[in-house]
Design a protein around this nucleic acid. Structure first.
Length: 761
DNA sequence: ATCCTTTAGAGATCA
DNA sequence: TCTAAAGGAT
């Protein structure tokens, strides 16, 4: 135990050793949050307060869950696989597999990822003759997901108008169709588990009895349903509720757009009767100037729980700011600076370039490519989302659950086997008529189409029969072969990569089987600390087997592998291993850290993004996003913006981001003059290519006042009412000249240049 | 069944 | 400007 608590600072120590009550840990960026979480678990176990089976640790990402597992197994001499550490969705999947009957699901229910869900909805709309112009699939999907994220079924959603009433009706149809096909979407995993435990008292009490300690990572990212789920698991309101150890940072809440509700933090304090709110404010990551910048910036937000990071490191380097004339010049500047850093000994992988939106990566990538610098872009297509992998998975899905119509449609004619749109229509009609799945409807289709379809069914049945006694990797290999997928890609010109990926799928199965313990005869978890499965009986005389943390006890290798494919889409394996510069959005940088960080495109409209800047809440989230970006940097931080930028095929003239005005002057070093340089006498740059519409005429007509009034596109101006703006376009001339001026938060204005009181700045 | 043209839409993410 | 997806032509 000495070792465990060794080197913790007083706040961390206090958090780790809190009594068994609910607690809220406000963990600032770089304050050792994960360390506190894992040490807390280890300490609870080591001091005998709880057995490993009594721990429930919830994260949002697989990466975070894995990280916890790894760190814990380094701290404790036990097999951590027996512990319930996972994502909300992963844990719900386990519970639903173990109690599928009580949850009203087939044992082999399958999980729709967001792509599957969208095509499912499109299919649903088509089958019900709904105009997808009036009811766009994406809108419906968002409607359904956000209702589920709030824990609401169709019947519980308030429908104020015709449109919403229709949406609610479609939500209901959607759920019914999912149920028929034996598929669940991501939100359903949580909602179904929540409903299961709400209504099934013995089950609820069993798990409440078991998980005496619940730990939650990134608590600020929880949505309403996840919060309710935690309340239920903890038995909040019970005589003896379980201890929920919630770790989060309200200043890093950047996922409101996907349903996260920071308000859960204050609700948690109240409803879980939190006695202990501990703030981790000691930062072990960033140098002083960087931290000061973050602190001063975030102080502009009004709704905060309040927290100020401090560091023992010195001030370090000032934050460097660059104003570029164009996005291209901005990229080139970044590369020059990065080259300097590399020359001074930085690893390329320790340099990150962050941007607000993905589209910005283009220009930077181009510059990096030209400069021949290796780089890695985060957030591309992931392994299990590739088309060929989805196809292979669809065959496996059909073998495990033939009623999955999405899987059926994906591969019924791939590789092509003469089953065209007409045959499919016939089949869909038959399925609708009998309220059965496409697979089950095949015998109802007669003629040539019918026999082709029957062959397909025979193929699936044959594959199932052939592989029933094979280990999973073998099964995958046989299916690749029998489905003709391999042959198909072998004959295709560009198929080599795809075949490679399909072979990777076999490897993934090998890896999965050994990691989850499916390759062993005996249960993987035999340590004394792991509790044995418990038998329960519910009212209907069914035996319920307590869900164990290990997958082999609750599902077949194939089912488990298929859920794995949906729940963990795999890395977007971009040239991993290489020492490459890191490119990513600010969102995907959360949780990471680098020696040097470039935050680019700091312009009004981009960052803060125009869609957010309208409302205060949106602006505050953008500011938190900026806070996250700043706190990624250890030693060097660079900020940049550009006077012109190509966006959607048009040149945009943005003002510099308001966030610059919220940073401490003494920590900032402007590499470019802060005031706009005068237009004349500039060296040749992208500026010179800016269209000069009207500028010349205006210049000839300045007699009415003075030379001061020669306006140009790109000129920064100040208006008494609208504040700072930038001239985007000038039309007309002389006393008729009018200009479109972008005033940022006040939007675009068309002003008469001879009337408006404008000052150059 | 495949290829080509047209069109709409372009913020961020994880499971 | 670029991309993806849908619709139309061969």
């Amino acid at each position: 135990m000495q070792n465990l608590l060794h080197n913790l600072n007083p706040e961390q120590l206090a958090a780790v050793t809190l009594p068994a009550q609910s607690a809220l840990i406000l963990a600032g960026a770089g304050s050792g949050k994960t360390r506190v979480l894992t040490t807390r678990i280890a300490w609870l176990i080591q001091t005998g307060q709880i057995s490993p089976g009594g721990i429930l640790a919830v994260t949002f990402t697989n990466k975070a869950a894995k990280e916890m597992q790894t760190r814990l197994s380094a701290m404790l001499p036990i097999n951590t696989r027996g512990m319930w550490i996972g994502t909300f969705h992963g844990l719900c999947n386990r519970l639903l597999r173990a109690h599928h009957r009580d949850a009203g699901l087939p044992q082999t229910f399958q999980i729709l990822d967001s792509g599957d869900q969208l095509s499912f909805i499109k299919r649903l709309l088509k089958a019900n003759h709904i105009d997808d112009e009036k009811f766009p699939p994406k809108t419906l999907m968002y409607f359904i997901n956000s209702a589920k994220d709030q824990g609401l079924r169709a019947a519980q959603v308030d429908a104020s108008d015709d449109f919403n009433r229709k949406m609610v009706g479609l939500y209901d149809l959607y759920d019914a169709q999912c149920q028929r096909e034996g598929v669940v979407d991501f939100a359903e995993l949580l909602l179904r588990t929540y409903e299961l435990l709400s209504r099934n008292q013995p089950l609820r009490e069993h798990y409440q009895e078991r998980f005496r300690h619940i730990l939650v990572d990134e608590f600020q990212d929880t949505n309403d349903l996840q919060y309710k789920w935690l309340k239920l698991m903890a038995g909040a309101g019970n005589r003896r509720p379980n201890a929920v150890f919630a770790v989060g940072d309200d200043d890093q809440s950047i996922y409101a757009f996907r349903g996260a509700n920071v308000g859960n933090m204050t609700a948690f304090e109240r409803e879980f009767e939190v006695q202990n709110l501990i703030k981790l404010e000691q930062n072990y990551r960033s140098h002083g100037h960087i931290l000061d910048s973050a602190n001063i910036l975030i102080a502009n937000n009004s709704k905060r729980l309040g927290k100020n990071l401090r560091t023992d490191a010195g001030h370090g380097e000032p934050v460097r700011v660059m104003e570029a004339s164009s996005d291209i010049q901005e990229a080139n500047w970044i590369i020059d600076e990065a080259k300097n850093l590399i020359r001074e000994g930085s690893a390329r992988s320790e340099i990150a370039i962050l941007y607000r939106s993905n589209a910005q990566s283009r220009v930077i990538e181009h510059a990096l490519f030209t400069a021949n610098i290796p780089y890695r872009v985060y957030g591309g297509q992931r392994f299990f989302e590739r088309a060929e992998i989805k196809h292979a998975i669809a065959y496996l899905q059909l073998m495990d659950n033939p009623h999955n119509d999405s899987a059926f449609l994906r591969v019924v004619n791939f590789p092509t086997r003469g089953i065209g749109a007409r045959s499919i229509e016939q089949l869909q009609d038959a399925a609708r008529l009998h309220h059965i799945s496409l697979y089950a409807a095949v015998p109802h289709v007669a003629g040539k189409a019918g026999s082709a379809l029957a062959n397909f069914v025979r193929l699936i049945e044959g594959a199932r029969f052939e592989t029933q006694n094979l280990p999973l990797p073998e099964m995958v290999r046989v299916v690749l072969d029998m489905s003709q997928l391999l042959v198909h890609y072998q004959t295709e010109k560009e198929g080599a990569d795809r075949i490679e990926n399909l072979e990777q799928l076999v490897n993934a199965a090998v890896l999965f089987v050994s990691e989850e313990g499916f390759n062993k005869e005996a249960p993987a978890f035999t340590g004394p600390a792991v509790r044995q499965p418990v038998l329960l009986t519910n009212g209907a005389n069914d035996v319920i087997i307590d869900a164990d943390a290990a997958l082999p006890t609750v599902m077949s290798p194939l089912s488990a592998f298929l859920s794995h494919a949906s729940l963990e889409a795999g890395d977007n394996q971009a040239q991993a291993g290489q020492d490459a510069m890191q490119l990513m959005t600010v969102h995907s940088a959360k949780g990471l850290e680098f020696d040097a960080v470039f935050i680019t495109g700091l312009e009004e409209g981009l960052f803060p993004h125009e869609n957010s800047a309208q409302e205060e809440a949106g602006l505050e989230e953008e500011r938190r996003l900026m806070y996250v970006a700043i706190t990624r940097a250890r030693k060097r931080l660079y900020l940049s913006f550009s006077q012109t930028r190509m966006l959607h095929g048009q040149t945009r003239y943005n003002m510099r981001s308001r966030f610059f005005d919220e940073l401490p002057d003494e920590s900032i070093k402007w590499l470019s003059p802060k005031v706009q340089p005068s237009w004349f006498g500039q060296k040749k740059s992208a500026w010179d290519e800016v269209p000069m519409a009207g500028v010349n005429q205006i210049a000839q007509n300045f007699s009415q006042t003075s030379a001061q009034q020669s306006w140009r596109v790109g000129q920064n101006v100040e208006h008494a009412k609208f504040g700072e703006g930038v001239i985007v376009n000038i039309e007309g001339s002389g006393t008729n000249a009018r200009a479109h001026i972008n005033f940022g938060k006040f939007g675009m204005k068309l002003l008469d240049l001879s009337i408006a009181k404008l000052e150059k700045i």
